[in-house]
C-alpha cells in the first residue's frame, strides 16, 4: 500500500529525514518509535504534505500513485489520514459541519454524490458509538476548549468518519489518561480491516499494549535503524533507547 524509498526531508535547510525506507502492506499495523527529535513527527507531516518540510530526495508511492506529487487535500482524498499530535482549534466551526464539508469533498473527488443530512447524521451516530464520543462535543467549535482526551478522541472519530486507507497516528497517546487511552485504542482497533493500514507514531510502549503492531521500527537520527516484531517495543520499554544509540554510533565509528 505504502512504499517509502530513501526519503530525505529537511526544514529550513536542516535535514531531518536522512533516507527512510519503509514498506507498509494492507492489513498491517506499523509502530514507529524512537527518542525525541529522531524525526518521527516529521515523517508523519511529510506523508501528510505539510509545506514547511522540503523533500530533497526519495519517493513515496501510495497505492500506485506518487504521493509527493499530490496536494495535501488530494492525499487526504486518496485515503491518507493523519491524527494530529496537537489538533487545531477552529472557532465557530462545529466538528459536524467540518466533517460534513470534508466528507463531501472527499466523495466528490471520488465521483460520489454528496451525503444528504439524514444519511450523514446516521453515519455519525454509528461512528460516535465506536469512539464513545458525545453528540454535544460534536456541536461545539472544533477542538476549542476540548480537554486533551476529547481532542484525541475527536481525531479518532474523524478517522472513523472519513474511513481512510492509511491512518497515521502521531503521538495519539500523549496527554491521555489510561481510560482515554483505552477508548481511543479500542476505536482504532475496531476500524482496522484487511484493506487498511495503520502507522502508529509513539514514544512509549504503553499504547502498543492496546494497538498491537505487526512491525516495530526504531527511528534514530532520521533513519530507521532497527525493525522487529512487537517484542522490540517491550525491549525498548525495559532498556530505553540508549543501547540502540550506542549500536548506531559504534557502527558509524567503525564504518
Amino acid at each position: 500500500m505504502l512504499s517509502i524509498k530513501n526519503l530525505h526531508a529537511s526544514i529550513e535547510g536542516t535535514p531531518i529525514l536522512k533516507g527512510i525506507n519503509l514498506q507498509v502492506n494492507a492489513g498491517e499495523v506499523h509502530a514507529i518509535m524512537g527518542p525525541n527529535g529522531s524525526g518521527k513527527s516529521t515523517l508523519a507531516s511529510v506523508l501528510a504534505g505539510r509545506e514547511e518540510y522540503e523533500v530533497t530526495q526519495g519517493e513515496v508511492i501510495f497505492q500506485g500513485k506518487d504521493l509527493l506529487e499530490l496536494s495535501p487535500e488530494d492525499r487526504a482524498r486518496e485515503g491518507v489520514f493523519l491524527a494530529f499530535q496537537y489538533p487545531i482549534e477552529i472557532p465557530g466551526v462545529s466538528t459536524t459541519n467540518f466533517l460534513r464539508t470534508a466528507l463531501n469533498q472527499i466523495r466528490e473527488y471520488r465521483g460520489q454524490e454528496p451525503l444528504d443530512a439524514v444519511k450523514f447524521l446516521s453515519l455519525m451516530k454509528e461512528k460516535m458509538a465506536l469512539v464513545e464520543i458525545d453528540q454535544k462535543l460534536l456541536s461545539r467549535s472544533l477542538n476549542e476548549g476540548f480537554s486533551g482526551g476529547e481532542k484525541k478522541r475527536n481525531e479518532i472519530f474523524q478517522m472513523a468518519m472519513l474511513e481512510p486507507k492509511l491512518s497515521i497516528l502521531d503521538e495519539t497517546d500523549s496527554g491521555l489518561d489510561i481510560d482515554a487511552l483505552r477508548i481511543v485504542s479500542n476505536g482504532v482497533n475496531k476500524l482496522k480491516s484487511p484493506s487498511t493500514a495503520t502507522i502508529v507514531v509513539t514514544h512509549y510502549q504503553r499504547l502498543l499494549d492496546y494497538i498491537v503492531p505487526d512491525v516495530v521500527h526504531v527511528l534514530y537520527q532520521g533513519r530507521i535503524v532497527k525493525s522487529g516484531s512487537k517484542e522490540l517495543a517491550l525491549e525498548l520499554e525495559q532498556k530505553g533507547y540508549d543501547w540502540i544509540k550506542e549500536e548506531v554510533d559504534t557502527a558509524k565509528a567503525t564504518a
Binding site: A48, G49, R50, E51, S71, P72, E73, R75, A76, R77, F81, L82, F84, P87, I88, E89, I90, F98, L99, T101, A102, L103, Q105, I106, Y109, Q158, L162
Partner: peptide, 16 residues
C-alpha cells in the same frame, strides 16, 4: 497556516 493545513488534511481544499 495550521488551521488551513488541518482542513487540507481532511480533504478540504484551501479556498473552502
Amino acid at each position: 497556516e495550521d488551521q488551513i493545513f488541518y482542513c487540507n488534511q481532511r480533504g478540504i481544499a484551501t479556498e473552502d
